[in-house]
Nucleic acid binder design. Structure first.
Lengths: 115, 115
DNA sequence: ATAAACCATGTTGTGCACCACAGAGTCAAC
DNA sequence: GTTGACTCTGTGGTGCACAACATGGTTTAT
């Protein structure tokens, strides 16, 4: 059983983030001492935290992470990750289009100069 | 000289956006009637608005747009746009890396199943 | 002259994912 | 047993780019 500070160092999640994740029921402490409300995390928490850290890297929103976590068997995780990939690929396409548009804008600027 | 509503329709920028742009000195009205504070825009405003609409499409922040506008000759516009392109290209690279990481995560999941 | 449509200012709210603080209680080490 | 490090709760703030009011004055068309 780890207290927040220790668990924070283990996971790389700040204490505030841990509190926030507990608030939104994304990662609740394994045990809360009713006498002082100290929050304790265990190795199970650690595994979940590791997954959350990954999902965060993958640009998951909190809501999406909650959706993943609601399904304890992680049955849908693969599907969701594939969906996420598609979303990212679309974003890449959008950015490429933006680059296209910038190029056109630059081109237009050059033509103006020539006239 | 156009009043906000008309100018809003011409440019596609909402009235609130126009007010906001005036507040942050990004696009100030060509004339303000001191009697009633009505804001009037002219054809010069329109040209600037068109550029702003483009920059917005290019994911420029307000601050960046202000930087562009501070330089009335638009001398640095090309440089800034090229910089912006580089930034977008970096973002694309980041997203591609994210996809890579998701793939690895998925792969790791499959290996776990096999064991 | 009256009603509809327009304009102004000022303030608050939005969404996201936390961060930062204040004030107070608690624990650990020496 | 005292000091320093830790913990809690609650509240407010952050950044971005507006949107959404409320309230009240003005203009335009009939």
């Amino acid at each position: 059983m780890y207290k927040v500070s220790e668990f924070s160092k283990m996971t790389g999640l700040s204490k505030e983030t841990l509190r926030y994740y507990a608030d939104v029921k994304l990662l609740e402490p394994a045990y809360i001492n009713p006498k002082n409300n100290y929050r304790y995390y265990d190795n199970g928490s650690y595994l979940i935290a590791m997954i959350l850290v990954s999902l965060r890297k993958f640009n998951f929103t909190i809501q999406e992470m909650i959706t993943v976590m609601e399904d304890e068997s992680f049955e849908n995780l693969e599907t969701i990750l594939i969906q996420k990939k598609l979303g990212i690929e679309k974003k890449i396409e959008d950015l490429k289009n933006t680059i296209e548009e910038i190029d056109q804008f630059l081109q237009w600027g050059k033509e103006e100069e020539e006239e």
